[in-house]
Design a binder for these strands. Structure first.
Length: 730
RNA sequence: GCUGCUGUAGCUCAGUGGUAGAGCACUUCCUUGGUAAGGAAGAGGUCAUGGGUUCAAGUCCCAUCAGCAGCUCCA
């Protein structure tokens, strides 16, 4: 007999051969029909598997049925759909090799090794074949084989990649599971849905290139993406969500609304903030500047470049060399010597080339000095380094912290001075990979709303707590109130981190304690930390439910060490401060880009680049229109007047399309009474004629309270909590 | 950086190896109007850049640059 514990706290006993399906059928035929899989002792398994396989030491097992109403079931459904897609592709493209086919956030993909190029034109026939397979409704059957037989089976099926994976990634697995569905057999961990007929709606989405095991030197594959749902409505609202996201694309809106521009002749990933976009940014900057001053921060400025030695001290230069713009060398030969050093370190420089490079450097003014006496590579490197140190080398600032550390160091500090909070909208430059650049969301020159807090170890928790409050406040002000925090710690198995294990543990514990006290939603991600300390990132959900990583708070016990920062304690001894890096918005580029998508370009009144537009009905009231405009501007509103000799309908249409929050229509009636007719863009209707003073008061209130009036509700609510990315082992 | 796709007027896009196109925007003129497009005329092009094939290239081929999607990366 098997004892099972149900989620409601009750227990049941069943025969040894019982399956989840049997249990469901015992309750009702309808439930049995709805069952997709089961959760047994915390892992999801096939509904048809005998539960006896999961019994350990004759203990009871924790058991839960998963039906179409449980979010976990979607992952199972999609993985099964990936198999069905693979089956269809193998029918249409005989000889297809199978790689991996996992689920993703809202769908699945499968990587195929196939000669012919699959294109979107092939989607209809693949989908038709899939529909046919689903209609046949064959079950997914699981079976296990010992290693040797598993390899044989994959060889028989000509699945070379599966064979390779069995011998590498799965080398330590004694038995391996397979799933059969009709003629289709695939090495797979599972679980799967009971029958293909459970898939009520699916769609192929895109095709892209990929590589075997993600290694670009490995075999190129074709990756087919798709999505699958339990109902046609769910699929429809998911597709609608994708369309909605396209409508909100900040690159399109940014161009249409004249917010920003990225021009190839300026440079890849270099953003030009046009007046309207810059206005939004200035308002946000002013807003946060005021908050910082109120909260005890001191404003500072630092230049856009600094000596390479500064970043060697901080450790950033060697660590991130490849994603920085190349150094600026003060000496013509600097670049050649730098190249020599790097090649000598790698050991990949022939003596002929080395000599040729040095001769070229000499033409440019380099003198060999110690190098002549050097015999080993180490000695040569050290001689070249010595020369290099005597020259000027600058780096475009890749981060602000070293500058702020130097400011801290500029005077002796007492524990009474701490915490010291230095804030700067610091522009930094990073040579991001070409393929990563994306509108304003990923650029090469960006401005962080950066600050560094220098405090005693005892103050860390309180500073972190206050920083959390600041971030919560600013996010609320722009209408973002749905977010969670991702606490990233170190990966105990990696050596990329600096600093001792003790300080890391101490830092991670401090952050976690404050987060627990705060009551905010957070999760811990091992191995995601920066190399110098743990961090807490804000994952913010926008109007249509997408998550964005924005602000960040990072503890740093390492830079103070590297820069030898100190303060005098109450004991009159020197102590090392702790540094906290924090940026509530992250970068202004990314934040504004995200806001454009969040608001679909229609900013709330307090942020709108143009808040109000005066629309005279005829030229006869031009003077009055100008007078209204003057009064609006005197009150600090960003306003304009449309003085074209067009009909008011046309002016309204243009203002609507330009997403101007309020239009003031003025004609002879309004002019006579000193009034305006207010038109609201969101409601797209006339609010009636009111005195100008009253209208101004209304707008002032809306700005002061930072009212967010636009309420977009996405139809896409379908089981949002599904796990991000579930790795399928094979 | 890698793979695939794309690049034609300010914008969105047609264009079959044989004279460069449309709508919107823009300029000028007419029109003076009441809550989402009044009318007419005009101007606007190194078809991304550089090579090649051809009697002839926007169109075919190669390279470069840039954009998009995906992968890898993210202080």
């Amino acid at each position: 007999m098997i004892k099972i514990n149900l989620p409601d706290g009750t227990s049941q006993e069943h025969e040894d051969h019982v399956t989840s399906l049997n249990i469901a059928r015992g309750i009702s035929e309808r439930l049995a029909n709805d069952v997709i899989a089961a959760e047994v002792n915390g892992s999801i398994v096939d509904a048809a598997r005998p539960l006896t396989e999961f019994v350990e030491d004759s203990n009871a097992i924790d058991f839960r049925l998963l039906t179409v109403r449980d979010s976990e079931s979607l992952g199972v459904l999609r993985h099964s759909c990936a198999h069905i897609m693979a089956r269809a592709v193998m029918r249409l493209f005989p000889g297809t090799g199978l790689a991996f086919g996992p689920t993703t956030g809202h769908g699945f993909y499968y990587d195929f090794d196939v000669e012919q190029k699959i294109s979107e034109d092939d989607f209809p026939r693949i989908e038709a074949e899939m529909s046919q397979i689903i209609k046949e409704g064959e079950p997914f059957e699981r079976f296990s084989l010992p290693r040797g037989e598993a390899v044989e089976l994959c060889e028989e099926m000509n699945q070379e990649l599966k064979v390779e994976h069995l011998q590498t990634g799965l080398a330590d697995h004694e038995t391996l599971s397979f799933y059969r569905q009709g003629e289709f057999v695939d090495l797979c961990r599972g679980p799967h849905i009971p029958r293909a007929g459970k898939i009520k709606a699916f769609k192929l989405l895109s095709i892209a290139g990929s590589y075997w095991k993600g290694d670009k030197d490995s075999k190129p594959l074709q990756r087919l993406y798709g999505t699958a749902w339990f109902s046609k409505q769910d699929l429809a609202s998911y597709l609608e969500q994708i369309e909605e996201a396209k409508r909100r694309d900040h690159r399109v809106l940014g161009k249409k609304l004249g917010l920003f521009q990225i021009d190839p002749s300026v440079g890849q990933g270099l953003c030009l903030w046009l007046p309207k976009g810059a206005t939004v940014r200035v308002i946000l900057e002013d807003f946060i500047k005021k908050e910082l001053l109120d909260r005890g921060y001191d404003p500072v400025y630092s230049p856009h470049i600094g000596r390479v030695e500064l970043y060697e001290t901080s450790g950033h230069f060697p660590y991130y060399r490849d994603s920085q713009f190349a150094p600026i060398f003060g000496h013509d030969a600097g670049r050649i010597i730098d190249y020599c050093i790097r090649k000598l370190e790698e050991g990949g420089l022939s003596s002929e080339k080395e000599e040729a490079l040095l001769q070229a450097a000499e033409i440019m003014g380099y003198e060999r000095g110690d190098y002549q006496k050097a015999t080993t590579a180490e000695e040569k490197i050290s001689a070249l380094r010595k020369w290099e140190k005597q020259q000027e080398r600058y780096l475009l600032k890749p981060m602000n912290c070293p500058h702020h550390a130097m400011m801290y160091k500029s005077e002796p500090r007492s524990y009474r001075d701490l915490p010291v909070r230095l804030a700067e909208f610091g522009t930094v430059y990073r040579h991001e990979q070409t393929g990563e650049l994306n509108g304003m969301l990923r650029v090469r020159g960006l401005t962080q709303d950066d600050a560094h807090l220098f405090c005693t170890p005892e103050q860390v928790e309180e500073e972190f707590r206050q920083t959390l409050q600041l971030v919560q406040y600013v996010l609320k002000s722009v209408g973002l109130d749905d977010y969670r925090i991702q606490l990233s710690g170190r990966d105990p198995n990696s050596d990329k981190y600096v600093g001792s294990v003790e300080t890391w543990n101490q830092a991670e514990a401090s952050l976690q304690k404050v987060l627990e006290d705060s009551g905010l939603r957070f999760e811990i991600c091992e191995g995601e930390a920066a190399f110098y300390g743990p961090k807490a990132d804000f994952m913010v959900r926008d109007a249509i439910g997408r998550e964005w990583q924005l602000g960040t708070v990072q503890l740093d016990y390492t830079l103070p060490e590297r820069f030898e920062l100190e303060y005098t304690g109450a004991d009159n001894k020197q102590h090392r401060p702790v540094m906290i890096h924090r940026a509530p918005f992250g970068s202004l580029e990314r934040f504004v880009g995200m806001l454009i998508e969040h608001f679909a370009g229609a900013f709330p009144l307090w942020l709108a680049p143009e808040q109000i537009r005066v629309l005279p009905v005829t030229d006869k009231v031009a003077d009055y229109a100008q007078d209204v405009l003057r009064q609006l501007k005197a009150k600090g509103f960003r306003a304009s007047a449309d003085m074209r000799s067009a009909k008011v309908n046309a002016k309204i249409r243009d203002a609507q399309l330009e997403l101007i929050p309020y239009m003031l229509v003025v004609g002879p009636k309004e002019a006579e009474e000193g009034a305006v007719s207010v038109r609201d863009r969101i409601e797209s209707k006339d609010l009636g004629m009111i005195p100008l003073a009253e209208a101004i008061e209304k707008f002032e209130t809306e700005v002061r309270e930072k009212t967010i009036r636009q309420q977009f509700k996405s139809t896409f609510q379908a089981l949002e909590e599904t796990t991000e990315e579930s790795e399928n082992e094979y």
